[in-house]
Design a protein around this nucleic acid. Structure first.
Lengths: 206, 206
DNA sequence: GACCGTAACACTAACGGTTAGCTTTTCGAA
DNA sequence: TTCGAAAAGCTAACCGTTAGTGTTACGGTC
C-alpha cells in the first residue's frame, strides 16, 4: 500500500520505527521512569533532537500505535449504516477496542501505562481530545440532532466506558453494563425541535 | 476559627500564602507558561526548595483553593438525608460547585487554566482522582448496592457533568441537561440482589 | 531562663525532558 | 552536476524538580 515512496521517506520511517522499537524494549525491560530519553536515543543510535523530531514527547513513544483510536471512533459514527442507531454502533466499536487492548500480548504495555503516573495522565489527556472529536462527529450527524451539550456528554460517557471497561475485572461484561447506562442516558435526550408534524414521542432512539 | 496556633504555624501559613499570592499574581499578569518557578520564588522571597516544600508542583500553585472539591462531593453522598436519592443530592452539589467557579471574580483564573495545556492536563488528572473517591463513597453506601462498575461509571459521569457544565455557554442549563442523562443512566442500574422478598420493580431510584 | 529536638527555610548542584541555534549529511529534481 | 531542501547531528541551554547539607527559629522541658 505504501511501497515505493522514495528512499528518503523509507529511511525516515525506518528511523522512526527503530526509535519506537528501542524505546518500547527498554521501557519494558527496565521500567518507563528508569529509562531516560538520552538513553533511548543512544541505544537507537540517533541524536536526542532527532528523537524529538519524530515524537512530540517521551510519552508519545508509548502511545504510538494508539493513533487510530480517534479515527475509529469517528468512523463508527460517520460510516454506520443509514438510520442505524448511534449507541449500538459505538458499543460495537468500543467492544472491539477493549478486546484489542486486553488481548494477551498487550498486557505488559498496559501494565506499564497503569503503573506510571506520567503515562496515565498523558493517556487521559489523549482520551479527552478523542471525546471532543467524537462529540463533533455526533453533532455533525443530521439524523440525530441533539444539543451541543448532549453530544459532548455522550461522547465523554463513551470514552469513560472504554477506560473503565479496559480496567475492569471482566472487560466485556463492563462494556455491557456501561453501555446500558449510556443507552438510557442517550434516550432521554431529545432533538430540540423536529419537523412541525410529529408532535410527541415515537421518534426516540436514533 | 484558627487564631492562636503558635507563631511557628502562623509563619508557615504566611509563607505559603505569600507564595500562592505571588504566583497567582504573576501568572495572571504575564501568563502561566511565561513565568518560571525560580521567578515566583524570587518574587516571593523564598528559596525554590521552600516553594516545593509547600506545593507539590507548579500546577498545584493554581489549584490551591480547589482542594475541598473532593470532600464536598463525598459528603454530598455520605451526609445526605436518610433515604434521600443519590442523584439529586449530587446534582445539588455539582450545581453549587459550577456556580462557584463560574462566578464573576473566578473568570480570569479559569481562563488561564483553559488556555494552558499543562494546567488542563493537571486538572483532568485531579478530577479522575476525585471520581475514584466518589465511586468509593457510592459503593460504600448500603442503601444503594450497585456493582463496582456501575459506581465507577456514575462517578465519572458526575465529574464529566461538572467539567462540561463549567465550560458550557449556559452552565446551569448544562447541569440540568447532563443530570437528566445521569439520572436515566443510574436508573437502569439495579442492585445485583435485594432481599429475597420484593421480587420485581418498585425499588428503583435510590 | 537555659537546653534540645525539630520544623522551616536556604543554598548548591544536579537530573531528566525539551528546545533553540547552527552545521552537516543525504536525497530528489532540474 | 548542481542546487535546494529535508533529515539528522551537535552543543548548550531552559525549566521543573529533587537530593544533600546546612542554618535558623520556634516549642516544649528541665
Amino acid at each position: 500500500m505504501t511501497e515505493p515512496p522514495g528512499r528518503r521517506e523509507r529511511k525516515k520511517a525506518a528511523t522512526r520505527q527503530k526509535i519506537a522499537d528501542t524505546a518500547l524494549r527498554l521501557f519494558l525491560e527496565r521500567g518507563y521512569d528508569a529509562v531516560g530519553i538520552r538513553e533511548v536515543a543512544a541505544e537507537a543510535d540517533v541524536a536526542v533532537t532527532t528523537l524529538f523530531a519524530h515524537f512530540a514527547s517521551k510519552e508519545a513513544l508509548v502511545f504510538e500505535q494508539d493513533e487510530d483510536f480517534e479515527q475509529r471512533l469517528m468512523r463508527a459514527v460517520t460510516d454506520r449504516a443509514p438510520h442505524e442507531p448511534l449507541i449500538p454502533a459505538l458499543r460495537r466499536e468500543i467492544l472491539a477496542l477493549v478486546r484489542h487492548c486486553t488481548a494477551e500480548g498487550a498486557a505488559p504495555i498496559w501494565h506499564m501505562i497503569d503503573t506510571s503516573p506520567a503515562l496515565r495522565e498523558h493517556e487521559e489527556s489523549m482520551r479527552l481530545r478523542h471525546a471532543e472529536s467524537l462529540a463533533t462527529a455526533i453533532a455533525a450527524d443530521p439524523d440525530l440532532s441533539r444539543s451541543a451539550t448532549a453530544c459532548r456528554t455522550i461522547a465523554r460517557f463513551v470514552i469513560d466506558a472504554y477506560s473503565l471497561s479496559r480496567e475492569a475485572a471482566d472487560p466485556e461484561a463492563a462494556v455491557d453494563e456501561t453501555f446500558q447506562m449510556i443507552e438510557a442516558a442517550w434516550n432521554v435526550t431529545r432533538p430540540p425541535r423536529l419537523t412541525p408534524r410529529a408532535p410527541e414521542g415515537q421518534t426516540q432512539a436514533n
